[in-house]
């Protein structure tokens, strides 16, 4: 028996490909949720009154200090006992999104706090509305510098997608494992999955860098 057999590579390829599509889709959708929701969390944290802001901070802390897998189980398995039945796909992506929103909100918060207090004061002195102040003055200065931090969580979430297997979503790694089990050959499928994760991570970090560079230039922050 060869250590490496190209036959199995060929066999596994179409099977793994479908898993890769699931993994990429879950990452993109989940991260879109995390980006938007994380920003909402950060803004509530900053703009809410003492009570609301505190509640938001506690919520974020709670999400960050329980395991992702537990949260997935909670929504998918505990929910139905109370009549809340959520399809696996929605539960999985939703929980990934919310979990990473908590992390992203801390990144955004660092960016928002780094904006000079004088920017808020000038906005008030010019009578800009709160919405306009956030959208046109604060966020364009707060976000570009923290794109690398957000990008780290993008890749982190990507690497967490195998957790979806726990609620029967056939993502990449699960398929690699299944393929191995069926054929009594693990090395090719698992290695291919590994290469896929590596390549995706490299491409993703290049994209994150480009976006960061572009945003910083766009807003003349460098």
């Amino acid at each position: 028996m060869n250590i490496w057999d190209w036959f199995y590579v060929q066999e596994a390829l179409p099977y793994l490909y479908r898993g890769a599509v699931v993994t990429v889709q879950a990452t993109l959708l989940g991260f879109a949720i995390a980006l938007v929701l994380g920003l909402v969390f950060a803004i509530i944290r900053h703009a809410g009154g003492p009570l609301v802001s505190r509640a938001m901070a506690e919520t974020v802390e709670f999400i960050r200090s329980t395991p992702l897998l537990l949260q997935v189980f909670f929504v998918y398995f505990v929910g139905p006992q109370f009549g809340i039945v959520i399809p696996a796909w929605i539960a999985g992506i939703g929980v990934l999104g919310i979990h990473y929103a908590a992390y992203c909100s801390e990144v955004y918060r660092a960016g928002i706090e780094a904006v000079d207090e004088g920017q808020w004061e000038a906005s008030t002195a010019l009578n800009l509305s709160p919405l306009r102040t956030w959208r046109v003055i604060i966020l364009p200065q707060a976000i570009p510098p923290v794109v690398p931090g957000l990008g780290n969580y993008f890749i982190g979430m990507f690497k967490d997608t195998p957790i979806l297997a726990a609620i029967a979503i056939l993502e990449m790694l699960q398929r690699a494992k299944n393929f191995g089990a069926e054929n009594y050959r693990y090395i090719e499928a698992i290695t291919m999955a590994g290469i896929f994760y590596l390549v995706f991570s490299l491409v993703a970090s290049a994209i994150v860098q480009a976006v960061g560079y572009w945003l910083n230039r766009r807003y003349h922050l460098t």
């Binding site: 920017q119 008030t124 002195a125 010019l126 009578n127 800009l128 509305s129 306009r132 200065q141 003349h220």
Partner: peptide, 30 residues
Amino acid sequence: RGKIGMVFQHFNLFPHMTALANCMEAPVSV
């Protein structure tokens, strides 16, 4: 507050806007 304007010790210009855009933002949006 619209009757009052203020100039600060540390300028507080919007760094991501040109001089012209700094002066146009509030007249347009407010």
